[in-house]
Write a protein that binds this DNA or RNA. Structure first.
Length: 273
DNA sequence: CGGGCGGCCTGGAGGC
DNA sequence: TGCCTCCAGGCCGCCC
């Protein structure tokens, strides 16, 4: 389940090998993902040079010369990886990107929740996927003050609140649980009951949990692998996510699992108030 | 208008 | 061992 750190790690690995390379050919093997993949990808991108890779939220943005940007979202089970062979395909290999220098990249997504779209680079900020997004959690535009002001206006449980992309982007189920553990806040607390001090602690916890995960190459809990199909290592550092029934490393209470707005949340009843 | 939830998918886990 | 059910979850869009 790729979240922000997984997409960021992937971006860093891809850019060292792909920036400046020309995309020779795009082959679309299956277009019927949840959002259909446009059939004219090859027509728009073939023989164009990749001039930049960016990440916004969990979207990977590929800027090509000629002013087109490819938008890729890994959804739940999406993978993007280099491959030697251009022949052996899995049934879930939906798009093949053949770059110069025999760099073959493959987009595989068994659950087909992912997205591969194209947009004119200049029109990206106004695109409906991007125009309502909140701040990037690792940038200065996301601060304890900003979080506190937003919290005051909402009675949603803080865990659901953090997963709302209008509040902050890129914080999914794993890192929301982990950041709340780190800041000692129960996931069920109404956002408006968070104090200024707690908002500052929570903001810092979100940043540090995400940064540590990027450092470890992301979390490979189920589906995520890196550009060379290598798993991330951050799952080894998880304190509460997926650890229900086990003992908290800090206070030895039993970690609990609850459901909030249809998603599982994990917390320590001893550490989180 | 904001928040909750259903639908989209398939693989893997767990129960019988 | 095999079949069936359930669960995972990001995001959109509908509905209250």
């Amino acid at each position: 389940m790729p979240e922000l750190p997984e997409v960021e790690s992937l971006k860093r690995k891809l850019e060292t090998r792909l920036i400046g390379k020309a995309l020779r050919r795009v082959t679309l093997r299956r277009a019927d993902l949840r959002w259909p993949i446009p059939k004219n990808l090859n027509q728009k991108l073939a023989s164009r040079q990749l001039v930049g890779l960016r990440r916004r939220s969990k979207y990977l943005l590929w800027d090509f010369e000629g002013g087109q940007t490819l938008i890729v979202h890994l959804g739940m089970s999406g993978r993007l990886f280099f491959t030697e062979s251009t022949r052996l395909f899995d049934t879930h290999d939906h798009v093949l990107f053949d770059f110069d220098s025999k760099l073959h990249l493959r987009f595989r997504d068994p659950r087909r929740f992912g997205m591969v779209l194209i947009c004119v680079t200049k029109e990206l900020p106004a695109h409906k996927l991007f125009c309502h997004l909140g701040p990037e959690p690792l940038e200065n535009s996301f601060s304890g003050d900003v979080l506190f002001l937003k919290c005051k206006k909402s009675r949603s449980p803080i865990k659901s609140f953090l997963m709302n992309a209008k509040v902050v982007v890129g914080v999914g189920n794993i890192y929301a649980s982990e950041a709340l553990f780190k800041s000692g806040i129960r996931p069920s607390r109404p956002a408006c009951k968070i104090t200024q001090k707690e908002a500052e602690k929570l903001c810092a916890a979100i940043k540090s949990v995400l940064e540590q995960s990027i450092e470890a190459g992301g979390t490979s809990f189920r589906d995520y692998v890196g550009a060379n199909e290598e798993p991330g290592l951050h799952q080894l550092q998880l304190k509460v996510y997926g650890r229900d029934g086990k003992l908290c490393e800090v206070c030895h209470h039993i970690i609990k699992k609850i459901t909030q707005t249809g998603r599982s949340s994990f917390y320590c009843p001893g550490c989180q108030r």
